[in-house]
Design a protein around this nucleic acid. Structure first.
Lengths: 295, 295
DNA sequence: GCCACTCATATCGCCACGGTATCAATGGGG
DNA sequence: CCCCATTGATACCGTGGCGATATGAGTGGC
């Protein structure tokens, strides 16, 4: 048999990420020599060189890169098994829902209410997280289901789009651009949020020169917008619930709308998840119909 | 940390599948007492009861079923990491292609030739397997890419449809149905192949009463058809290459056509896989165009 | 009611894994 | 140019985890 063990994978991932046996050992809470030996033994047992070592430098080989990717996936799967069975073993297993505050289009309360009407409903645990934390939470079993804006890395996940709404640009009221009509994406280039917020637009990655700290707090973002430092592209539902005097909202030509989706692990066969997806779809459909009547 | 180990997962899966500590221990090549102790220790460490034991019976709890599913996935991921890194570490890593003979629409040679023209091409290893073995081979890292008919369990996989072709029913020439026109699926119920062959049609699962052995050999299938025992629904391309005097082919109303697809793990970022997918798509498109000109 | 079956407990022995001490190689700085 | 700091490798030792054997205990069938 293969004989590959979780401990070996953890060790390798630590070394591959640190590219330094000493620091990796520290991170693992162990001494450096047994770590060196474990990696060497791993290479021997696989018959593959994973690392190029000199006494001053450690680098990954091609095979090492392959193992790093696959080991992370495998470790996530093992961790997920652990977390899910712990949850399933509780007297009242919960549905653990990962979401990002203010990105639920204000529908979360209604969805939860609708969900509880389902006979397959179980208690819900809410997992608030920053943008980009929902998907890893599904991968490693912290969450059973997530609500998040598309697009996202859906490897190993199934998902269902719920609703699509336009986005506007948020900028300071005294910003010269606020007076203009028909803003173009190019007008706003170089002023995107550095990270965290929905900056992965068609305009691409955040500006490399930016020294602004990644900011995940809504109040901070608004402050920075008021200062004219950055602009931001919130969806309509978020704007409706967070009006501020110092901030103006303007349409931008060709700005991709925001689509909210519900996602869950493909492996999931849980009736509780299915019920939540049904409830979420239901509420979103109703909400869309309302919007059509009274926009 | 979690501390869950591969050994524990293997032990649990063995017990959960056998529902018998003695047989599971035998399958694992070990004695029964340490296995009992290991499972008990696993339950203690998770704080979850996985099995209901009496001295005469072992049964899975709900949490046990959850762990069985997730443990299989995790073990596949670990095994895949092992196999993939071993392949990646070879002097000339191969592209391992899983397929089922006669279900390549006769395009495999052209696809391989087209693939070899790509600068990203590497040596190809062919993994012939019975129906249903391609997907597990992708899951546990035996294969990098697969050609197989849809639908299939695509959890964790990406895929691309290549071409769609009609299927006919194959039956004995002296079968009364062979004289009829406009066959319906209902006419053929109860005579489907028990397993292995493409029996997962809209007509559903194989008949439960059937005592016929699962048969995966083409010659055997043809023999059984000639005997009038069963009928079968091969795609057109297979028929063209396997004409036999004793067998007649007739259209069936509403019979779902067969779609050939190429599939690969979502985790894959290998240029070799991408190149093969491109080559396969290319050849399939060309072939379809030829068919349009000279059908 | 006895026996066979099956899972649990007790005890022993080994080796795998981690720790400490030390070596060896390499690159940078005085 | 040589010395020293840095960093991975080697040597050796002790412990604890894991598996084997022997045995016990509970249960269903005949």
């Amino acid at each position: 048999m293969s004989g590959l063990e979780v401990r070996q994978l953890r060790y390798f991932v630590a070394v591959a990420e640190e590219l330094h046996f000493g620091r990796a050992a520290e991170r693992l809470g162990m001494a450096q020599p047994p770590l060196s030996r474990a990696i060497r033994e791993l290479e021997r047992q696989l018959g593959v060189q994973l690392l190029e070592r000199t006494t001053r430098q450690v680098a990954l080989t091609e095979a090492g890169r392959v193992l790093l990717r696959d080991a992370r996936i495998a470790l996530d799967a093992v961790t997920a098994a652990d977390r899910r069975v712990r949850n399933a073993g509780r007297p009242a297993p919960a549905l653990r829902l990962a979401f990002k505050p203010d990105y639920d289009a204000g529908l979360l309360p209604r969805m939860l209410a609708e969900y509880q009407r389902d006979p397959a409903a179980v208690p819900v645990e809410l997992l608030m997280g920053a943008r980009g934390e929902q998907v890893p939470a599904l991968w490693d079993g912290r969450a059973d289901v997530a609500m998040l804006p598309t697009p996202f890395d859906d490897r190993g996940l199934d998902f269902e789009p719920l609703l699509t709404e336009p986005r506007l640009v948020a900028l300071a009221v005294d910003d010269p651009l606020a007076a203009r009509d028909g803003l173009e994406p190019a007008d706003l280039a170089g002023r995107l949020l550095p990270d965290g917020a929905p900056a992965d637009d068609e305009t691409g990655a955040p500006p490399p020169g930016s020294v602004l700290p990644p900011c995940r707090d809504l109040a901070q973002i608004f402050n920075m917008i008021e200062l004219g430092t950055v602009v931001w592209f919130p969806p309509l539902s978020l704007i409706r619930r967070h009006r501020r005097p110092g901030i103006a909202y303007r349409p931008v030509r060709g700005l991709r709308p925001s689509t909210l989706a519900v996602a869950w692990p493909q492996a999931s066969r849980s009736p509780a998840v299915a019920a939540f997806v049904r409830a979420a779809t239901e509420v979103a459909a109703t909400h869309t119909a309302e919007d059509l009547v009274a926009p």
